[in-house]
């Protein structure tokens, strides 16, 4: 096995991890701030892909789909938080979990009714199709683009959380919402925006994944399982954890595909089990949360 092949494999893993990061980040942000385990996250990823497809087919441009769909689905997320999830705060953690679980089914069925269950083609935008020579081998231009977009989003997210007043409030609110209320911060409004942000991120992941995969109503189910594995490995609620674990899982899948391809799906669960044995709270998780 030559070095070039291993390097290519490593790179494929990183590209694979990029989409995982987008989904896991949203899941982790929502859990970290709101304490809600969002089981509709995979369905919202799928809805994002369909929204991107719809906008792209209406405008004739992939770029409008990429821009509009995550914002629109993010706003839809805000609506979900305000109408469905907010009444459940202060109750047991199971309640929002069950609600979002059901919501996921509703969204999948709704998409089946509107778009059919067969799946719809989503062409790679012509300006991003083709392969690029990386020196170590050839790689699809579109996948390089995805890695780039995810990197930019991560930088913006980091700047937003670390350098702005809103970010400060969000970080403080995650630590102690009670104090924030006493200080006169409308924490409900912060949670609303955080939920919308998390949903927007997974919708962006959906639009980005659409040209690589078949767009179909079940596409979110597998992604949700993968995203949960990533957040558990990284530590529930930790953003850095989601990023590191996303890359780790992507690379683990990719390297396994090289040596024992039929194990490529199992390996992430094995990795999760191993991490849980050594660090039950995940790589970057806090010891325990109420």
């Amino acid at each position: 096995m030559d070095a070039e092949l291993i390097a290519m494999q490593l790179f494929s893993g990183i590209a694979l991890g990029a989409i995982l990061i987008m989904v896991a980040l949203g899941l982790s942000i929502i859990f970290g701030m709101l304490g809600v385990v969002n089981f509709a996250h995979g369905a919202l990823f799928m809805v994002g892909a369909y929204a991107g497809l719809w906008v792209a087919s209406r405008t004739g441009s992939f770029w409008w789909g990429l821009l509009v769909a995550p914002i629109a689905i993010g706003l839809f997320g805000i609506l979900i938080e305000r109408v469905l999830i907010r009444p459940l705060y202060g109750r047991s953690v199971d309640d929002p979990l069950l609600l979002t679980f059901g919501l996921g089914y509703v969204l999948v069925e709704a998409v089946r009714i509107v778009f059919g269950s067969d799946g719809i083609p989503f062409q790679t935008p012509p300006e991003l199709s083709g392969v690029a020579d990386l020196g170590i081998g050839f790689f699809p231009v579109y996948r390089l683009f995805v890695v780039g977009v995810v990197a930019i989003v991560l930088v913006l997210l980091w700047l937003g959380l670390e350098k702005t007043k809103f970010g400060l409030i969000v970080r403080a609110g995650a630590k102690d919402p009670q104090i924030m209320r006493v200080l006169g911060v409308d924490i409900a409004k912060v949670w609303l925006l955080v939920f919308g942000l998390g949903v927007g991120l997974t919708a962006l992941g959906g639009v980005l994944a659409a040209p690589m995969r078949n767009v179909n109503p079940e596409m979110g189910a597998l992604v949700l399982a993968e995203a949960f594995v990533v957040t558990v490995i990284g530590g529930m609620g930790s953003l850095l954890g989601a990023v590191v674990a996303g890359l780790l899982v992507g690379v683990a899948i990719s390297m396994t595909a090289l040596v024992a391809p039929e194990m490529a799906t199992i390996v992430m669960f094995a990795l999760m089990a191993a991490v849980l044995l050594v660090r039950p709270q995940g790589l970057f998780g806090k010891k325990s949360r109420a």
């Binding site: 494929s12 597998l222 595909a257 090289l258 490529a264």
Partner: peptide, 15 residues
């Protein structure tokens, strides 16, 4: 051999 129902095949392509 790839796992049944996989969504991503990119990791098999270099090989």
């Amino acid at each position: 051999l790839h796992p049944f129902g996989a969504a991503d095949y990119s990791t098999f392509m270099p090989r």
